[in-house]
Write a protein that binds this DNA or RNA. Structure first.
Lengths: 158, 158
DNA sequence: CCTGAAACGAGATGGAT
DNA sequence: ATCCATCTCGTTTCAGG
């Protein structure tokens, strides 16, 4: 089997909502061949099961005054300290995403700010908050972001 | 000034929608102290101006069968070739985001797939499609992703 | 650019197949 | 689990300030 409890129709609904989070149940019904209330129930169920974690608007960062994006890769200065970087950095609002990774560094952050000067200030705050050294990679062009990625093809007997 | 043509009320609407893209105009009105139709107009305007670029559902990737996320940093093998990686990679569905960056590598991709074996296959396809060498950083834990990042504080005289 | 009312369409629920 | 009928509530448009 493909994946426990997620069959073809649900996958289709997920794909449609990933692409347009405001799509109406009526339209979802037309697209899936189900009635409005059938999709309604399925969507509510997907939300309850946490397969849909939320809905968001995609904002044009450049136009609202945060044109500068960067990756900050970090490694602890003192390896004997507890590795709780994510918690220590959570309050910093410029951090959009936080991942721990396998590789030369322990964490990668994606941050957004207004200017190089703001980035410099942000880096200082990151280093101070988590006691880490940083390596910064500035984003030049965002070709695309958060493109919906489909799961594996549904299988017949699901 | 803060930013041309984006004042306090619009910023608040953007923040609310970034956090909940399905919020109703009625509720947006209550939250901003405007009438339903006033927020309606403003949101439509924000969409037209491309400050709102779309709406999407946040999907639980682990649960739909793509538990493995990774960054692929790439550099061209032949620097004399045209630098059109983004276009050459666009058809690969596992790529969720594609940025060009300043630093040792030219591009960073965020990809999602089902398994290490699928990642290996994906890497081969990336290398073949764009004629590049790759460095892969596997994500261990996603602490958070796509947290709404606010723009600069609105200023008084906007 | 805002409000308020009026018409329309979609969301939500319960009962039946 | 889906469908249908129903009621409710949100959306959309428009006239007017």
């Amino acid at each position: 089997m493909s994946h426990p409890g997620v069959e073809a129709t649900d996958r289709k609904i997920l794909a449609l909502l990933a692409h347009d989070g405001r799509m109406s149940f009526t339209d979802l019904g037309k697209a899936t061949g189900l009635s409005t209330s059938a999709v309604h129930q399925r969507v509510k169920r997907l939300e309850q099961r946490d397969l849909i974690q939320g809905y968001g608007a995609t904002i044009n960062h450049a136009e609202i005054g945060v044109p500068l994006a960067a990756f900050i890769s970090i490694r602890p200065i003192d390896p004997s300290q507890p590795d709780d970087c994510a918690a220590r950095l959570e309050h910093i609002e410029e951090i959009e995403s936080c991942w721990s990774v396998a590789g030369e560094e322990s964490y990668v952050l994606l941050v957004r700010c207004t200017s190089p000067a703001a980035l410099e200030d942000l880096l200082a705050r990151v280093r101070a908050a988590a006691n880490v050294s940083t390596r910064t990679t500035i984003v030049l062009t965002t070709y695309y972001e958060n493109r919906p990625v489909a799961g594996p093809a549904a299988d017949p007997e699901a």
